[in-house]
Amino acid sequence: MSPIHYLAEDTLISLLKKRDQRAFNYLYDNYSGALYGVVIRIVLHKNYADEVIQDIFVKIWNHVELFNEEKGRLYTWMINIARNTSIDYIKSKRVQNEQKNQSLPDVVNSSETHRYADIDQMTKVDFIGMSSVLGKLKPDWKRLIEMAYYEGYTQQEISDRLEMPLGTVKTRIRAALLQLRGILNEQ
């Protein structure tokens, strides 16, 4: 089978629905990097990320029937699957770790430690050298986007944790994304 270098979205979707390997190749070659970039920023460990990215492609493959072109774009749909799968994964890992740690008397704020805990003795991914567009945001705004996008907190949880009214959380997230748009346009 010859590789395909460009596919219109509707052709791609119909090939996907026919379970054509060329559709997989096209998806993987064009989107795996972007999806993996989302995954690794959420799960933070390469071993985890490798496991999750497999899950994601299996889900895309199996659930393509559920994708509705009228409701949104394929890329957005895949990013949402990647993000949700990663957040679910890291939450279940967190639960497992909490269970492991139950014998320890002093597990305080265990839900907050997932970015810092290193229970599995795995090397965390080194983000140096990775492109970080978020790093160009104001630090407060960067933190908001990290919590909302990569850490899976709800607006209410962000509001509680940062002791900021819910309405302010919403308008600041909006401001942060508007600044992000400006940064991406400059690149």
Partner: peptide
């Protein structure tokens, strides 16, 4: 915007994963 962010922050997975 979120698509562009994902594209911009892409990280290639290990080649054998494909």
């Amino acid at each position: 915007l979120l698509e562009d962010l994902a594209t911009e922050q892409a990280v290639s997975p290990a080649p054998e994963l494909k």
